[in-house]
Structures are given as structure tokens and as C-alpha cells.
Amino acid sequence: MARSALIRILFLLLAMPFASCSHATEQSARPPIRIGLTPVFLDDQATFINEWRDYLQRHLDQPVTFVQRGTYREIVDLLGKGKLDFAWLCGYPYVRNKKIFRLVAVPLYQGKPLYQSYLIVPSSDRQTQSLGDLRGKNFAFSDPDSNSGHLYPEYLLAKQGSNPSSFFAKAFFTWSHRKVVEAVAIGLAQGGAVDGYVWDTLALAHPELTSKTRIVSKSPPFGHPPFVAGIATPRQDIAALQQVLFRMTHDGEGGRSLLDRLNLDGFVYGGDRLFEGIEEMAKFVAETGNNTSRK
């Protein structure tokens, strides 16, 4: 008992400086909300992410920690193990982990909770009309767990009875959509698959980069990468985050401008049905992949 009392005193002492300088005395007592981020958006803007975190802290009345990792898989693993409360990730890992993840919100892009996968080639390439023309070339994927940056082109190849490693001379991952655009722009890859929302947003901020690439084809619309919660995340936390995200578009001061910088219109619940297309593709690729590997 004496030990726990000691810990309590220590904790109070540690909290003192915060109490003196911050009005959010109660916040510091509560554990922070941990949100995992993946490169489904332009996640390499540290200032923007800080501002967004501050916004969420203010509106959730609770500390918020953003966690970024090199791959989708790491974020997925952390969320699965309960080390994150929420994550903004791709629809593909969501549908694969539907049993342990809960849908929180889906971004609205151009008024819809949808996005596309773009097949891009260097702008110098005027011939390529489809993915089929890129046989024997080098190809850039974003992340193995990305729908737009991997699953969709893999699915297209699977439908033709092929797979990336045999179809392309060299296929590699850049671990982010933005870097797919870079790899194609400098000519390292003769083709790449990229999140259409990221490409469009990049075209606004860095037209000099996107202008070196050409969009060959766009996929049918899929559910936009959603915010999901881990299975252990308390329901009231989910509801609180949903409230804040849904209201951002109506929040004239901070929320609206943050959404503008994200090039999004807002967040909605969306629903699982949005991701059925991805689920089907994943199932198809998994089956053909299993078949080819068994052969």
C-alpha cells in the first residue's frame, strides 16, 4: 500500500508543472488517445500534422498522440495489439482485419467517400495505353498493404493470369504514394500505381512533380481509406472522435481550413459496404495467388 501511495505522490509531482502552465489540468490526468497514421494522405507535413493534433486535442479535451511508421503493416500490427486506439489506413488492411477493427469515419473527397487508383507513367511515355503495355518494364508499387498502390494492379494482372514478379522486369515498393510519383517522374520505374486522391492533392501542391507523370488509366471508385478503431477502443472514445471528425467541416475556424489543406470535404461514417469492392479483389487475388503458388 505504501508503494502505491508513493507512486501517486510521484505522479502528482510530475503533473504539477503541467497543472501550473496548462488550463487542461484534467486532460493530463487522462491517458492520451493514440492515432496511427499511414501515407494514405500526404503524411510528410510535420507542421500540418501538429496543427491537426492540437485541433483534435482541443476538441476531444484529451491529449492526442500521432504515431507514424514506415509501413502500413506496422500500424496495422500496433492497432491489432491494442497499442493504438485509432488508425487512418487503407481499405485493404481494413477489410482483411474487419473482425478486430471498427470503422470510425470515411473521408469525403470531392463530395464522395470514394477514391480511385491511378496508373501513371513518365510524361515522356506517350505510347502506353494500359497496364498490359508495361510488360517487362520496371514498376513501382506504394505499399504491399495498399489497395490503390498494390492490390488493384495486382488484381488486374491476376485477372490476366499473371502476377507482378513475372509480368514486370522489376517491381518494387516505395512505401508511400508520393514516392511512387517520384519514382515514375525520375524514370526509375516505367509505371506506377498511386492513390488518385494523393496524386490530385500533390498536383495542387507540387505540380512540378506530377507534371512529369501521365495518368494512363483510373480504376473504378473504391471506399476512401477510412479511420478505424481497434477492438479494445472504448465506445465513448470512438463516438467522441466521430463527433469531432464529422463536425470538422462545419467548424469554420480550424476544422474547415485543416480539411482544405487535406484537400478533403469532411468525414462521414460511410459504412462497410463501401469496401466490398476491395474485399472482392482481395479474395480473388488471394485465391489466384494460392493457386499459382500451389502449382
Binding site: K170, F172, F173, T174, W175, A183, L188
Partner: peptide
């Protein structure tokens, strides 16, 4: 890890 992009 055959990570071409990281190498580049």
C-alpha cells in the same frame, strides 16, 4: 531486403 527505392 531488395528495397530498391530505399537504396535509391
Amino acid at each position: 531486403h531488395d528495397d530498391v527505392w530505399r537504396s535509391l
